[in-house]
Amino acid sequence: MAGDIHLFNRTASTTVNKGSNIMVKTHLEISDVSIEFPTPSGPFKALDGVDLKIKEGEFVSLIGHSGCGKSTVLNIVAGLYQATTGGVLLDGREVNTPGPERAVVFQNHSLLPWLSAYENVELAVKQVFKGKKSKAEIKEWIEHNLSLVHMDHAMHKRPDEISGGMKQRVGIARALAMEPKVLLMDEPFGALDALTRAHLQDSLMEIQNELNNTVIMITHDVDEAVLLSDRIVMMTNGPAATVGEILDIELARPRDRIALADDSQYNHYRHEVLRFLYEKQSKVEDIDQHRPKKVEAVEEEAPQKATA
């Protein structure tokens, strides 16, 4: 099968990147990153001394309250923002401009609305593989990536002709097709309903099983973080946010959401994250103003979330 050949190629090329025995060596290093945004009322320090080392093939989630600076971290890694102090090292080299080896899946899909799903992926593939793959190979590669996210049936439809979940799938296919060293996802499923989100999470786990990408994913969803991640990085509240705690998730893969629902280890991880978010870093002012019931609901456990 054509797809298998590509998978093989991909594994081969990543092994070359890795070298021989440096599986555990740091792949991506966020080193003492701080950033100040100029605002009319003086500079605003959004991040202060963010330190994070990520290994190759690791899936890391960033979680934290809204506005703490998760997107800012991701944008700095992507090269879209410049850190005021500190920097980002990828395979030992500093990165401070955007590039396709750090592909981004944006929260609101960010597909070009005038191009079909296929053409959207094609734009990225041509940009990365021009001169390296033949025309036929490029076509095959695009179709392969679209089928990875189960979009082969609708690949010639334009974004306004497919559902939100499908758009997000295409966004992921576009990022995967660039064969990035690091895949950056900013709340990739944030705008989707719970059912579609679960589907996409399963798809993502499947793909991750096969490709073993290095991923940084921002999420607001505690279950999503525990289910998908190898490590969860919990951020303190802004301004001057930084890494609060890091939680290693040692659940065997492949993971199954239904089986895990009753798993004590899984629930322990969930509690850890919830405790961090709602006890140690509770956003009292915000919650009192806008969502007074949310705190109680979460502390009383998930089933009552809906009533909040």
Binding site: A78, P98, G99, P100, V104, S110, L112, L123, Q127, M178
Partner: peptide
């Protein structure tokens, strides 16, 4: 901003940026 970010991440050159993103939008 999203589409501009896409263009930056893909490192589209000026010509492709104009024809694929600027003109259609």
């Amino acid at each position: 901003q999203d589409l501009q970010n896409v263009s930056k991440v893909l490192r589209l050159n000026f010509f492709t940026h104009v024809t694929k993103i600027v003109l259609p939008s």
